[in-house]
């Protein structure tokens, strides 16, 4: 995918299974929004193959559109509308796409209840708080009972309580509705809580793909070993993947070593190092991220 003359996405390759929650994780400018817009069918691409629910999104027809839900980073449309009337209006379009397996659309009052907006049903959209507006956007995104939902930075600007409620909603979607969810976030904690699988995107390339546990193993290389010998505290950073060898040698050569401590760099350390590197604008190197003691 090139944008202008700069290639912005290269080596982005992944597949999502039905009912899976997939998180695209990466610092700002990593290509998350570009990727998700291509999948939503809102952006063309210069090359590569994309198939969403069996169609190329660029050629996705209205029938395809009815099976996809889109929640963008910042909606501020329909400010004058009443919450319930807007949801009702948008739900009407999905009636013809109801099938034996999936009854479309979602009942409007039921959905308002599910996203916790029953009390705001008659409020003007403009008057909603940031978190309420976001929940309305999610409600609109899923009102057609989509098989696949795109959520771009869904909890940006949420307080912890709203974030928690939102996470519950996403879990409900994937567990009870069997909806496939693809979300972007720059928050590792959120990705770990929500996703079955995390894709780490860095400068237009996927640098890791797996469950949170697998990621910790592939991304986090460094370990730190601390011990006390001869009344002195020692610290050693191990660059190898597995610090066991180092510890074995250490214990053999220093029988007096006590207070041994081995700390694996966790996913958070590694990810923070990645974000820091991007924010300080340092040149990209493929060396494992360093962890300061």
């Amino acid at each position: 995918m090139t944008y202008g003359t700069k290639e912005v996405l290269a080596g982005v390759s992944f597949t999502a299974q039905p009912g899976e929650v997939l998180a695209l994780l990466g610092p700002n400018g990593a290509g998350k929004t570009t990727t998700i817009e291509i999948l939503e069918g809102f952006r063309g691409r210069s090359g590569g193959e994309v198939s969403v629910l069996g169609s190329d999104p660029v050629h996705g027809d209205e029938q395809w559109r009815a099976r996809v839900g889109v929640v963008l980073q910042s909606w501020r449309d329909h400010g004058r509308w009443r919450v319930r009337e807007l949801l009702d209006y948008l739900s009407r379009f999905y009636t013809p796409y109801s099938t034996a397996e999936v009854t479309r659309p979602w009942d409007v009052d039921e959905l308002l209840d599910a996203v916790g907006l029953t009390d705001q049903a008659d409020a003007k959209v403009l008057k909603l708080s940031g978190g309420q507006r976001r929940r309305l956007d999610v409600a609109i995104g899923i009102v057609g009972r989509p098989e696949l939902v795109f959520l771009d930075e869904p909890t940006a600007g949420f307080d912890p309580h709203a974030r928690r409620e939102f996470h519950d909603l996403v879990h409900r979607l994937s567990d009870f509705e069997n909806t496939t969810v693809l979300l972007t976030t720059h928050d590792l904690d959120e990705a770990e809580k929500l996703a079955d699988r995390i894709l780490v995107l860095d400068r237009g390339t996927i640098i890791a793909d797996g469950s949170p546990d697998e990621l910790a193993r592939t991304l986090a290389h460094n370990a730190e070993v601390r011990w006390t010998a001869g009344g002195e505290r020692h610290v050693h950073a191990v660059a190898e993947r597995d610090p066991t060898d180092f510890v074995r040698r250490l214990l053999a050569s220093h029988p007096d070593a006590t207070e041994l401590e081995v700390r694996r760099a966790n996913l958070e350390d590694t990810y923070l190092a990645l974000v820091q590197r991007v924010e300080s604008g340092r040149e990209h190197t493929h060396a494992p991220a360093e962890v300061s003691p």
């Binding site: 939503e40 809102f42 209205e62 029938q63 559109r65 009815a66 889109v70 963008l72 910042s74 909606w75 501020r76 449309d77 329909h78 400010g79 209006y89 948008l90 009407r92 379009f93 999905y94 796409y97 609109i140 057609g144």
Partner: peptide, 16 residues
């Protein structure tokens, strides 16, 4: 303000 994009994201939303 994204009203048109919302129409685009809805099946046959542009007609509506």
């Amino acid at each position: 303000d994204g009203t048109l994009l919302r129409a685009k994201a809805t099946p046959d939303g542009m007609i509506g």
